[in-house]
Simulated scan of single mutants.
Amino acid sequence: MIILGIDPGIAILGYGVVEYKGNTFKPLGYGGIFTDAKEAMPMRLKKIYDELQQIIDKYHPDVVAIEELFFNKNVKTALLVGQARGVAILAAANNEIDIYEYTPLQVKQGVVGYGRADKKQVQVMTKTLLNLKSVPKPDDVADALAVAICHAHSGAFGGLFKIK
């Protein structure tokens, strides 16, 4: 199974493509989609969509796993991230790819086995499970890979977290 993990963001949208076969992971590609704060919002969203489409065309993922929006105190930031998340969901839906969403707590549980793990623990476990030389940077990229790993570990529960 090829999983496209996404950590949604407007300035940086992290992505990680992982193949999960026989209880082993193989990273196929990962990185970030960066947008310029000086650009108009429609152009930033278009860039995210276009680059995600290129990633989908290159890797042909079986599923997309995306982190749920974590609402912080800054409502404006949450709304912007929500727009980027919507564009990511649209890219998957337009390609008829099943979409699963996970909370930060579920991602920590799925990667580390402990829902209250700190960011460093998740990053080290992600690096270890994917047999990478170092933790991917920026954090958004490591987070996207963690979301993909979480899905591999949690996806057996059927459509439990699936966006219908």
Rank of each mutant, 00 (worst) to 15 (best):
D118W: 04
V75Y: 11
C150M: 12
I10C: 08
V18Y: 11
V122Q: 01
T24H: 11
V124S: 02
L45C: 03
L130V: 09
Y59I: 11
G32M: 02
A92E: 00
H151D: 06
K137V: 14
A152R: 01
L129R: 09
D98N: 06
I6N: 04
L4D: 01
H60E: 13
L130K: 10
I48S: 04
K46S: 13
T24G: 00
E19S: 14
G159H: 14
I48C: 08
P8V: 04
P61F: 14
Y49E: 10
A144V: 09
M43V: 10
Q121M: 11
A117S: 15
A93E: 07
K164M: 08
V135S: 00
K47Y: 04
L45T: 02
L129E: 06
R85D: 05
T77V: 09
A84S: 10
P61L: 12
G115Q: 13
V75W: 03
I6W: 05
G5T: 06
I97P: 00
E39K: 15
L160P: 00
V135M: 00
K164F: 08
K137H: 12
M43S: 12
L129W: 08
L90W: 02
R116H: 13
V18C: 07
V107W: 00
A78L: 04
Y114A: 07
K26H: 10
L28D: 05
I2L: 12
M1C: 09
E19R: 15
S134M: 10
G115K: 13
H153T: 12
K26G: 01
V64T: 11
V64L: 15
L90I: 11
D50R: 14
A88D: 04
P104G: 00
A148G: 12
L45N: 02
F157S: 08
Y20V: 09
I12K: 11
G14K: 11
K38V: 09
I163F: 08
D139T: 07
A142N: 01
Q53Y: 10
I56F: 14
I99A: 01
V135P: 00
L132S: 01
L80Q: 14
A152L: 02
Q53L: 13
F34L: 06
P138Q: 09
I3E: 07
G32Y: 01
S134L: 10
V141I: 15
G14L: 11
A40G: 03
L160K: 15
Y59P: 08
L132D: 02
D57Y: 13
I163G: 00
T77Y: 03
L90F: 04
I2T: 15
I97A: 01
E101F: 07
D7F: 08
I10P: 04
I163D: 02
D62A: 13
G110M: 10
L52Q: 09
A84F: 04
V124E: 15
Q121P: 07
I149G: 02
P42C: 02
T35D: 06
A88F: 07
V141L: 04
A93Q: 09
I6D: 07
T24E: 14
S134W: 09
V17A: 12
I97F: 05
L45Q: 02
G16K: 09
K162W: 08
F25P: 06
D143W: 07
S154W: 06
I99S: 00
V122P: 01
T24S: 14
A142T: 05
N72D: 05
C150E: 08
F157K: 14
A88W: 05
K119C: 06
A11M: 08
G158E: 11
